[in-house]
């Protein structure tokens, strides 16, 4: 592992480096769903918009696949972080 990989951050929300990502893949976590649970990439404020794209690219190269062959974790609502007070005021019968 090079020092560069240690310093190169893949996930800014959860502070995960490229080195940690490569090590996790080597340990057998070879889907984005597993990497998400193992490293918490995609669990932070950005909900994977930055890190999962990067991780998908790294994973594809490691596995010798194309990026579009990498399965994406389920996209979870509310997509963007929303305050509890705002959600509490939503009328769930309002279907707009």
């Amino acid at each position: 592992m090079s020092d560069d990989q240690e310093e190169e951050i893949v996930c800014r929300c959860e502070d995960v480096s490229l080195k940690e990502l490569l090590e996790a893949i080597d340990r057998g976590y070879t889907t984005l769903d597993q990497l998400k649970r193992y490293l918490r990439i995609g669990m932070g404020h950005c909900q994977g918009r930055t890190c999962l794209r990067l991780a998908a690219g790294v994973l594809a190269r490691k596995l010798g696949k194309r990026v579009d062959e990498i399965e994406w974790p389920t996209v979870r609502p509310p997509i963007l972080p929303v305050e509890i007070s705002k959600l509490a005021e939503v009328d769930e019968r309002d279907k707009r």
Partner: peptide, 23 residues
Amino acid sequence: ITTMARLLRKYIPALKPVRVLRQ
């Protein structure tokens, strides 16, 4: 998520400005 938000707001009012990341 709306019911849960109302419950959290009621149980611990200080959580009002805290943001939900995912369900």
